[in-house]
Design a protein around this nucleic acid. Structure first.
Lengths: 140, 140
DNA sequence: TTGACATTTGCGAATAATTCGCATTTACAT
DNA sequence: ATGTAAATGCGAATTATTCGCAAATGTCAA
């Protein structure tokens, strides 16, 4: 069985450090998600992962996304009218904008939005665990 | 048939002005949603509307929410792991925060967040059609 | 290294929110 | 009043996601 395990020991570590068991399926999924620079939904992800490792089931992709999200390794983007999409937790903070004409998901770089939200939440006596923002917009 | 039509001619006008047909079902739904200060999901709404007007079906509640959203009269709040919730389009701008302990949906007053988003989107050459932000947080 | 055991997986069935098809009713412009 | 496009109710269909369970497997302690 060919998996991503042997190729990318980094992902083993990332999973171990998060207190998660390292299974071939998880390694394959993380490998694919890390290599992908768009924001795949489960179906996209499943198809790509399958090409690398055909032992993976859809259910496992769902379960893995959930586990990784809880571990803070993955961010889930809940869409308005489409299946959720995922990305590896970014080191560079950004939010998301949906281009209503093309359907593209555009990244908005910068920490301003997050900082403002933290401030505003703090004023209400809350500490942000996560925030989820999707802006729908069209080109001017 | 008792409906909200006779009681609240304001809603007739609101619907007409938006170019929508005024049906008893729509009037009942708008009446209930307007009176409600929490953010009901379709099931909540359906139950309350039913008490007022038992000709309304769930499908119509869904369809009406969709129509009103497109008309800009209603805002849909897409939740992470629960059915969507709705509110009449607020005159006072605000965003939303989910209290992770209680599950409550708290309103964050103010236009700062929206303004910042507009600015940032403009920098990328976009004009915001709508933005949807849900912050998940816990009390400090 | 091995064994024990909790975790994870694949599979297909189940769930739950939302949409759809269609026959019937209805709002409203004329 | 009347014709017609739009809206409705009903239940069936769809679709993303979760679940149950038996089999497989990762990890940890000895």
């Amino acid at each position: 069985m060919v998996t991503a395990l042997e190729n990318d020991p980094d992902y083993r570590k990332m999973l171990r450090d998060a207190g998660l068991r390292v299974t071939p399926q998880r390694a394959s999924i993380v490998t694919i998600l890390s290599e992908t620079d768009d924001h795949p939904n489960v179906e996209d992800l499943y198809e790509k992962v399958r090409a690398l490792d055909d032992t993976v089931s859809v259910a496992t992709v769902y379960r893995t996304m959930s586990v990784l999200e809880n571990a803070g390794l993955v961010r889930k983007l809940v869409m308005d009218d489409a299946p959720a999409r995922y990305e590896m937790m970014p080191h560079t903070e950004h939010d998301h904008l949906v281009d209503l004409e093309s359907g593209d998901l555009v990244e908005i770089p910068g920490t301003e939005i997050a900082e403002l939200m933290s401030r505003v939440a703090a004023e209400l006596g809350y500490q942000i665990v996560s925030h989820h923002t999707v802006i729908r917009a069209r080109k001017t």
